[in-house]
Design a protein around this nucleic acid. Structure first.
Length: 891
RNA sequence: GGACGCGUAGCUCAGUGGGAGAGCACCUCGUUGACAUCGAGGGGGUCGCAAGUUCAAUCCUUGCCGCGUCCACCA
């Protein structure tokens, strides 16, 4: 006998282990039996190796697992390829912090090799926890194919890609302004910069004209940058300044003579209309500098301190100290013309939180513009489709305005750039040192050349960009690559469309000639119950593993699926999870009911052959549900799938079918009983299959437990065949009949409740005005109606008698003889209200039908539908009016 | 400044050119052997506002109001 409730805590780990050990997560299990099986592939968005499972992962990975389990059950060689990302900055940060906590010497003292070794040690010990957390969620990843972005194979792929892009001219070195993170002392890409609004000030400085005829006032929020000023720009059409163009100002403190140039960049509307130009420390100024051939003077070192290009007194000062100092000095010089408070956006490093400095350095760049073109075309042509579709606009927007991608990082943890410099600085970009040596020997014509390898590593996203094909063995022509690439669908969130999706498209198309995935499903962002973004600082972060502990993985999974509608945000409340836990319990108890009533699977049972109306009906409802769930998952309409499952299992199977089956199961018609038992068992099995992708644990457990009384199963539910039920299972006559039955019982219940008839009171029901078909139905289901309506008997009558409570079902009038419970006033009110409601309906419909344009222009079936509605409403109203009249007579 | 999205029941959200839906919450009743993590019933909405298209608009178009997100911007 099943327990009263399902116990996820004991079942989940046991089942997961059983699945994993049996090898069913791997597509190889399918391919062994059917080498021709169609492939289905998802590569996981590799979580950071430093990460732990957050609610966004729970959502994202649940959806991937639903798709994978679904396709696996449909007989495909389904591969969900897992792995983790080495996460350059994040990991280096974690390990550095840990070294500090343990009182170790720092990274720099330790040296590169030793430090990298430490990171690998850390990875072996505590890295990749998240992978086990995914297991707790029930993720059916093929762990035998697990990859790491820094493993040997992926490293080889990275080197190959780098060298090829370099030789094609799509990777190059350049000296430009980069976003410099003084905390980590590395360049970062535009995407890693986060604009934050902060309090700031404008300082207005006067720069004296060299000829002594006056001054020019400029404003800045970064006074220290004035030390690197090499011009002042004014708009060519700004009449206030036309006479000054070409003149020189003497830069205060520094004493450098700098020109006043005319440039469209200067906006007469802003500030004084004159703007200081610091080409080495401002992106706009850099462009101005290029146009006017200005010197770019770098005044900072890699820590953000003032360097030797600054006057003596400022050297070595932190940029923010220097800022104060500059303001003081300008004030002393009498050149501070004003201070203005402001709130403005300031760039910060997304990892370090440090204020980013535009900084002039040599870095490696990818010609993203060139690579973007095929990536744009592929989506424009629909070779890759985003869902929801509107995200394509975001993708286009970014790719059409893409800037060169700075890929070098001054870190130690990552893919070291395969570039070597000869003694004269000549570059050799090769996949390994031997090849670089060989190239150098050819170049220099000497035997042994001493080469120095580039110190930098690559942006983590460079290797992530290769993920869909590098994980499958590229550049080798592996069987996996042939079979599983391009992948079918990528499931990810919108915040990495630029970082990751776009880069995979660029790299995938360039190196394989094919799109890396045919569909991109953008999942929602999980927020707290109030709709706020979860963040550690707000303290509203929900721990998915805590929820798994409390409610079970299935409940969390169902919640994620049920909330995955077309919206961009998901507001997660615990109440919702609780509700879906209850749903699992409901299913569990339905199985328990089946067990108690010996609803046992019958080998060779064919639902097509059932004869009982309720069995024909539930067979059709099951088929409809299977079709809907299939359609919904195929379309990534996850909420629809969850809704269809919930409604069918709870509101159809449990609320009605099992209730309707009770009289038969307890009755004495042996054949009907046998058929109903077999049907109930069959429906339960179909429920388990259909629900399995969303709630794998409880369904697998029930699959196993029901075998104890239903005979052994042929393998896991996980590998059972997905229901494919023919439309012929739907029987219109049975549907109409059960629909009528449900309506009748509902009416009876409704009246009983409204009249406060005690459940123990059994009342007789009469039915008048019934057609022959209805009378036949009545005969067939008399026992059912009596039981579910808690009636004493059901009679046919010529008309509803006085002292009864009437209601309308179809063409017939039912009447409950519950005179002793009738509150005349309440009953009068009820009838009046219902009559009014019909009257309203009649009025609206009649008006519509009275409109000649409507009758002439609306489709015929709509007109006909309205005519029927009008007739029905009029008939019902008439019956209720008659009842009201009788009521008046009685009183 | 540019782009995108959203305003439907108290809350969270589905939905459709032709009679407004679900879950939760709320109210009433209920210990009939699957289930109180439950059952039966009920109340509750001029579908943000305005105009337009249409025989017909919650749905399509435009404008407005409100909310949110992303991108750009440190004169």
């Amino acid at each position: 006998m099943l327990e009263k409730t399902f116990d996820p805590k004991s079942v989940e780990p046991r089942l997961y282990r059983a699945w994993e050990e049996s090898g069913v997560f791997s597509p190889d299990a399918v391919l062994e039996k059917n080498p021709e099986a169609e492939a289905f592939t998802i590569v996981i968005p590799p979580p950071n190796v430093t990460g732990s499972l957050h609610i966004g992962h729970a959502l994202n990975n649940t959806l991937q697992d639903v798709l994978t389990r679904f396709e696996r059950m449909r007989g495909k060689a389904a591969l969900w390829l897992p792995g983790t990302d080495h996460a350059g900055i994040a990991t280096q940060m974690v390990v550095e912090r840990q070294l500090a906590e343990q009182g170790n010497i720092g990274r720099r003292d330790m040296g590169r090799e030793a430090f990298v070794e430490k990171v690998w040690e850390w990875k072996a010990q505590s890295g990749g926890q998240i992978v086990n957390q995914l297991r707790r969620l029930g993720a059916s990843c093929d762990w035998s194919r697990e990859r790491f972005t820094l493993d040997a194979g992926l490293s080889a792929a990275v080197r190959k890609v780098f060298v090829r892009l370099y030789k094609e001219g799509l990777i190059y070195r350049d000296k430009r302004l980069v976003n410099w993170d003084p905390h980590f002392q590395t360049a970062i890409s535009d995407l890693e910069v986060e604009q934050r609004e902060v309090d700031g000030q404008y300082w207005h400085f006067a720069y004296p004209l060299d000829d002594g005829t006056g001054e020019v006032v400029v404003a800045t929020t970064r006074p220290e940058t004035m030390l690197g000023d090499t011009a002042v720009a004014v708009h060519p059409d700004d009449e206030r300044y036309t006479s000054l163009i070409g003149k020189l100002v003497r830069l205060p403190i520094v004493g450098r003579l700098i020109p006043i140039v005319a440039d469209d960049y200067a906006d007469p509307e802003k500030g004084s209309g004159a703007v200081k130009i610091t080409p080495a420390h401002d992106f706009n100024d850099f462009q101005v500098g290029k146009r006017h051939d200005l010197e770019a003077i770098n005044i900072l070192d890699e820590f953000g301190r003032l360097n030797a290009n600054a006057p003596e007194e400022f050297r070595g000062l932190d940029r923010f100290d220097a800022r104060k100092r500059i303001v003081e000095r300008m004030e002393e010089l009498g050149l501070l013309r004003g201070i203005e408070k402001t709130r403005h956006m300031v760039p910060h490093g997304d990892r370090s939180g440090a204020v980013i400095e535009p900084y002039l350095t040599d870095q490696w760049y990818v010609d993203a513009h060139t690579l973007a073109q095929p990536a744009l075309k592929a989506v424009e042509e629909g070779r890759t489709v985003f869902e929801p579709r509107h995200w394509e606009k975001t993708y286009f927007e970014w790719l059409r305005n893409i800037e060169p991608w700075c890929i070098s990082r001054q870190l130690w943890w990552g893919h070291r750039i395969p570039a070597w410099y000869g003694p004269d600085g000549h570059l050799f970009v090769e996949e390994n040192e031997e090849e670089a040596q060989a190239a150098a020997q050819i170049h220099y014509g000497e035997e042994d050349v001493s080469l120095r390898r580039d110190e930098d590593v690559l942006d983590t996203w460079f290797s992530s960009g290769l993920w869909p094909f590098s994980t499958l063995g590229w550049p080798e022509e592996t069987d996996d690559l042939k079979r599983f690439y391009p992948t079918d669908i990528l499931v990810t969130s919108f915040d990495i469309i630029f970082f990751w999706v776009a880069r995979m498209m660029m790299m995938g198309l360039h190196f394989t000639g094919e799109v890396p995935f045919e569909r991109v499903f953008i999942n929602a962002l999980v927020r707290d119950a109030k709709g706020q973004k979860m963040s550690k600082s707000k303290g509203n972060v929900v721990d998915p593993l805590g929820l798994v502990d409390k409610y079970g993985a299935d409940a969390l999974r169902f919640t994620m699926v049920a909330l995955s509608g077309p919206n961009r945000d998901i507001k997660l409340s615990e109440q919702r999870i609780e509700g879906y836990r209850n749903f699992g319990t409901k299913l569990w108890n339905a199985a328990r009911f089946c067990q108690m009533n010996e609803c046992v699977r019958v080998e060779g049972f064919d639902p097509a052959g059932v004869t009982q109306t309720i069995n024909k009906w539930i067979r059709g409802e099951t088929a409809k549900t299977a079709a809907e769930v299939t359609r919904a998952i195929e379309a990534c309409a996850f909420d629809d799938a969850a809704g269809a499952l919930y409604r069918f299992i709870w509101n159809v199977f449990c609320d009605w079918y099992l209730e309707l089956a009770k009289p038969i199961l307890n009755g004495d018609d042996g054949a009907a009983q046998e058929e109903t038992r077999a049907t109930a068992a069959w429906v339960l099995d179909e429920c388990l299959k259909l629900l399995h992708p969303v709630m794998p644990f409880i369904t697998e457990e029930l699959w196993d437990k029901t075998a104890e009384f239903g005979g052994p199963r042929n393998g896991f539910l996980m590998t059972a065949q997905w229901p494919r039920l023919p439309d012929s299972y739907i029987d219109a006559a049975a549907e109409a009949e059960i629909g009528w039955l449900i309506e009748l019982v509902s009416e009876i219940r409704s009246i009983r409740a409204e009249m406060n008839v005690p459940p123990s009171a059994r009342a007789p029901l009469t039915l008048s005005g019934a057609s022959e078909a209805t009378r036949a139905r009545l005969t067939r289901h008399r026992d059912l109606i009596v039981t579910l309506g808690r009636l004493s008997e059901v009679r046919e009558a010529d008309e509803a008698a006085a002292g009864t409570v009437p209601f309308v079902v179809g063409e017939a009038t039912g009447a409950l003889a519950i005179a002793q419970f009738i509150d005349l006033a309440a009953e009068k009110a009820r009838l009046t209200k219902e009559i009014a409601s019909h009257a309203g309906d009649i009025e609206r419909t009649a008006k519509k039908l009275g409109n000649a344009d409507f009758v002439a222009r609306a489709p015929e079936e709509v007109v006909e539908e309205n005519r029927e509605r009008l007739a029905e409403a009029e008939a019902a109203k008439a019956k209720l009016e008659a009842a009201l009249a009788r009521l008046a007579t009685v009183s």
